[in-house]
Amino acid sequence: MRATYKDFLIRNWEEGDRTPASEVIRSVLSEYGLGWEPNGADRDVLQVEECYLATGGEFWVIEHQNKIVGTAAYYPIHRGEKAVEIRKMYLLPSARGLGLGKYLLQKLEEAIASRGFQQIWIETASVLAEAVKLYESSGYKQPTGVETARCDRVYVKQL
């Protein structure tokens, strides 16, 4: 992946991104009163190669002026038919309100569809109001069965 949106660069994750990407996610979680879980829900950010790249997923970083300001990722899951889960879609406050989140979601959906997947799952927390609004306005439906402890909402979309 290599795309631009306004003056943001969206690109594939590289090994040197591990710490800055982790800091973005930790910062956004903290902003919303959610905990960083390096041995739990956030272990995948510290092990991108194993959790995403080796499983057929992708992990992207978003740069602005050579600084990582966001992340977006997905990997295949055993939930439904030919399914993936979108994960780690976080933007720092400076990158919000510009349509970048919606653009990222569209790019993720395109990449996922091009690989033959048919279902997208997303888990999130109600306190992430902007994310909830984005998913609901993008055609995601709310089934039941949240699997991540800090999340209280789950969404699914058929491609």
Rank of each mutant, 00 (worst) to 15 (best):
G70M: 05
Q142V: 14
L134M: 07
G139R: 11
L100P: 00
T71Q: 03
C51T: 13
P38F: 02
G35V: 11
G99W: 00
S137V: 00
N39L: 13
A41V: 12
V61R: 08
T124M: 12
P143I: 05
L100K: 12
R87F: 00
N66F: 13
K67M: 09
A131Q: 03
D44S: 11
S22F: 00
E136C: 02
S27T: 15
I120Q: 04
K107N: 01
R96M: 09
E123S: 07
A72V: 13
Q65G: 00
E23P: 01
S27Q: 11
S138R: 04
Q47A: 13
A21T: 06
S22R: 05
E50I: 07
K82R: 15
P20T: 10
L46F: 06
Q142A: 12
C151L: 11
R150Y: 12
G101A: 06
Y5K: 12
A21E: 02
T148F: 11
A3L: 15
A149H: 08
L92F: 02
L105H: 03
I62W: 01
T124Q: 10
T55N: 10
V156E: 02
V132T: 03
L128M: 13
E31I: 13
K6E: 03
G57Y: 03
K88W: 05
G57N: 03
T148M: 13
E63I: 13
L108D: 00
K102G: 14
E110H: 05
E110T: 10
C151H: 09
V61H: 03
K82G: 01
Y155N: 04
P143M: 09
N66M: 12
P93F: 05
K107A: 06
T55G: 02
R150I: 14
I120L: 10
F8L: 14
E130L: 08
K82F: 07
F8P: 00
E110A: 15
S137G: 00
F117K: 06
A21C: 10
Y74T: 06
E50C: 05
S138P: 01
A72I: 04
W121R: 08
Y90M: 12
S30W: 00
F59A: 10
G57I: 07
D17W: 02
V24K: 05
H78N: 14
T4I: 15
E37N: 14
I68S: 04
Y5T: 04
V48K: 13
Y90P: 02
A129N: 08
E14A: 15
I86P: 02
A113I: 08
V45D: 09
R87G: 04
Y32L: 11
S94H: 01
L104C: 08
A83E: 05
L100A: 05
L46H: 09
E81I: 12
T71V: 07
D17C: 09
M1C: 07
A113L: 11
K107P: 00
